[in-house]
Design a protein around this nucleic acid. Structure first.
Lengths: 351, 351
DNA sequence: CTGAAAGCGCTAACAC
DNA sequence: GTGTTAGCGCTTTCAG
């Protein structure tokens, strides 16, 4: 590949002049610039971002670590983060941790090695982004969607507790008193918050906690399907299910169909988040939507702001947690509880 | 941030020794290595990947450009590409072109500047990856999911033509003779192939092409909803719709519900690809599934292979196009055509 | 306005 | 085994 030197030799100019000309720097004769640009194009010159980054110690890159590339909860924000950053001239290095804390830490390390100027992070463990601070305390970090226990990073999250609470309140207002929750894996801030909201709402409504079971497991349709099945078998009095993620909703629907049960006539179901398909599900899903796009934009803006602040010897700022409220979306998957008990007909699954 | 020199000074060793020790290179006394590692850890030393990359002219990074971060057609492959590459010690720089050829070209350029060692690319225009070749002809490139007109790049795609054909054959076997297709935007290889399959099947089945209308538009639920509405209004004889992407299926369902129509009793609907929600849709969707995971793995393997070949003065290899077959998945959204004509009741939309 | 030279942090020859 | 040195490609003083 052609280098600056090649262009310099081709034009009989000095390295410095060529550099200035190509980086749109002032102080170069217009005709000189023309000549340089022509030669550069002719040689197919492409600047070497590694060399430039090394020299200026600024890579114009930002890292983003998310746990799952196929989950709208993360990609929806990632999309706007990438867009905002791109408009500001930064490139996004997007990594996927598969929800594995070890990989998570590895990826964070490698981003630091690549000298990214900031990191957006969906933490996969409570340790979260602390790895980074031990490497380079001045590197701006914002946590998105999930919160770790780190004290020194900003975080942008949804108000998940409020969401669950609203959902349960809604079910209670419909007349439900036996509500089950299919929760996520313990130890993640999202799970914790959603669970807290559930328990708080159950308490406030004066429901019997024993009649409102909670099952913990991964945010995975297959697990959720099994969990729902088991739940119904063990607790056929349940009249409503709170499936606390879109994957969970999916599994719940499948289990319910398997039993020949209809939503909402046999059992009510509410979800969380709002992927487009909720509108065309077996029963359009009543849910709590989080403003993921706004959250992503905010995260990106904050990142940019922190980068800018970093230029100047920054006054000690306090890390802030910004919690976005969402909204309850009432569709058709939840109605007043059925009368009578559940008839579970284990049907052969279609395909 | 600490540099190699800092570690060298701290240990009273030479730069080279420290470098060797830290990069696990042979020819260093075990105790020396210990000492170096201890000092490095104490100083919080992190290697500078920019400097290393510059020196070795190899960045251990691979670029991936996809048009949409929120579409499983791309992210599903992206996820496995990232995984395979990560296992081989490469970092993925994932960029999103928003289906805009200009941005696409920009991103490709910036990847070249960052000296990635290979690029996986979902082209957003027919020019596709040619930008890259003009910059650096020896940079391995593989197109994934879509094909451009580039002659010199490998491509991994699904057999979309076959898919449409199978789907239409299936509808015909059910008795349909008036089938509409909601197609994607003209000019993309996927659209072209899906359309070709449709037309070929229509012809082979001896259907009247006039009775099998095709609408072109973006792969977008809202557009698809409008298109479906219009279609039904203009052509109420239609008994089946081929919605040629998952977004399109979504819109079609919404339009159909809006008219108070039921799938499949009033009208049959078949989709394309196989996102998990197809199973829990208003009517579980009959579709043609592509092995996206296998395709992604293949793309990554090919990339790795090309990188390895690049080390040696490579014999001129021919670019290959690998086309993966998928499979027809029969669910419940298509049955024998209704008898009688359609009653369109424009109902107030719920929520 | 342009050129020469230093140096970003690292690795790979080459000496010792 | 270890140290010295050159140089990857670029930007940026500092002279001219």
């Amino acid at each position: 590949m052609a280098t600056l030197k090649d262009v310099a030799e081709a034009t009989n100019l000095g390295l410095a002049t060529v550099s200035r000309a190509l980086s749109g720097n002032a102080g170069v004769l217009p005709e000189t610039r023309k000549k340089v640009e022509a030669a550069a194009k002719a040689l197919g010159y492409q600047p070497n971002a590694l060399a430039r980054g090394l020299r200026q110690s600024s890579s114009k890159a930002v890292g983003l670590v998310i746990p799952d590339l196929e989950n709208e909860f993360y990609t929806s924000g990632a999309a706007v983060i990438q867009e905002v950053l791109a408009n500001a001239g930064y490139r996004l290095i997007l990594c996927c941790s598969n929800n594995d804390p070890t990989i998570d830490a590895l990826l964070l390390d490698s981003l630091v090695e690549r000298r990214v100027e900031a990191i957006a992070h969906v933490p996969s463990s409570a340790i979260g982004s602390d790895v980074i601070r031990s490497r380079n305390p001045s590197l701006p970090v914002v946590e998105y969607a999930r919160r770790s226990n780190s004290e020194h990073v900003d975080s942008i999250v949804g108000d998940e507790a409020l969401g669950s609470e609203k959902l349960i309140e809604y079910l209670v207002s419909l007349g439900h008193r036996r509500i089950a929750m299919i929760a996520g894996p313990r130890g993640q801030s999202t799970t914790t918050a959603r669970l807290a909201g559930f328990e708080s709402a159950v308490r406030k409504a004066g429901l019997d906690a024993d009649q409102c079971p909670v099952l913990h497991g991964p945010y995975d349709p297959d697990w959720s399907e099994d969990a729902t099945r088991e739940l119904l078998l063990q607790d056929p009095q349940i009249t409503a299910i709170f499936a606390s993620s879109s994957r969970t909703v999916l599994g719940a629907f499948k289990a319910l169909s398997g039993f020949g049960l209809h939503v909402p006539s046999d059992i009510s179901l509410v979800g969380f988040l709002n992927p487009p398909w909720y509108e065309v599900a077996l029963a359009p899903v009543t849910t709590y939507e989080l403003p993921l796009k706004d959250m992503g934009a905010m995260a990106a803006d904050l990142l940019l702001k922190r980068i800018a602040e970093n230029e100047h010897p920054h006054a000690e700022w306090a890390a802030k947690t910004i919690r976005f409220e969402g909204r309850l979306i009432v569709r058709e998957s939840a109605t007043a509880p059925r009368v009578g008990s559940l008839e579970l007909a284990e049907m052969p699954r279609a395909s």
